[in-house]
Amino acid sequence: MKLFSEPCGMNDSAFITNIQHFSLHDGPGIRTTVFFKGCNLHCQWCHNPETISGKSQIGIDTRHCIGCGICESACSSHLHSINENQHVFMREKCQGCGKCAEACPAGALEMYGQKMPLDEIVKKCIRDKEIFPDFGGVTFSGGECLLQAEQVILLAGEMKKRGIHVCVDTALNVPWSVIEPLIPITDLFLVDVKAGTEETHKKYTNVSNRRIIDNLKRLTRISDCWVRIPVIHGINDTEKEVEAMKILLREMGEHLKKIQMLSYHTYGEAKYRCLELEMKAFEAPDLSDQERMLKVLLETGIPAEWS
């Protein structure tokens, strides 16, 4: 299977937004997390909106803009202009070359998405192996990192060669043939399951959860997995939804080791603002909802926790 027309080798690049060191929330231990750009789910509550689009994007933080106009001359398509201290940007015409962000001294413009050579990614990923031996590792996340499965396979293979623990953080909304080659080189899959019922899943993520569930069933029979559920009050924490989730997770294989629930938060607000996107308002579950949900999901017999 090929998601990319060109064959991919170590000289190639991956399209990523960030590499985060000392990450404590993306799998066990102290991890280095690579955020791939591009996603085929569109969860309305997404807290990393800059990873959804598969193209480069410019973020504008107007709070930092000092109106110096350096971006005007940096952009060969003249998409930036400063009018009476108002920064105007013709986003729809932007090709994402990133020259404006490179020039902006104020840090008001940020380029989301860069093609980073795989060997450079490897270098960054192995940096902390020596100082945190046998504790943590590397997590490939996103976006949906499996949309760049060729790169993930190569990178994971490099990690395995060096004895580094590999997590793949995915929604599994890809053909099984994409997942299969990763199994021998991945220590733990972090699988995001957004909703228990197909109806809710489709309504809030734009896609059905059927393929996800099928993949998860197969995967949990072979490879260690944690299921991670972003919990949004009134959407996927209703009694009906939680019950459906419980039934669904009960059918999984013996390699499903943990259920992690993550409460909705608005920390991604600034990124929405910078991308000039509207952030839909949702609510976080309160403590009683959290307790109720935990109790129900513990009935699956699988360890479950709020993270």
């Binding site: 000092i66 110096c68 001294p105 104020a106 840090g107």
Partner: peptide
């Protein structure tokens, strides 16, 4: 000279 200051700080 704010752009220059920011250049020194951020770039």
């Amino acid at each position: 000279q704010e752009p220059l200051r920011l250049y020194l700080m951020n770039k």
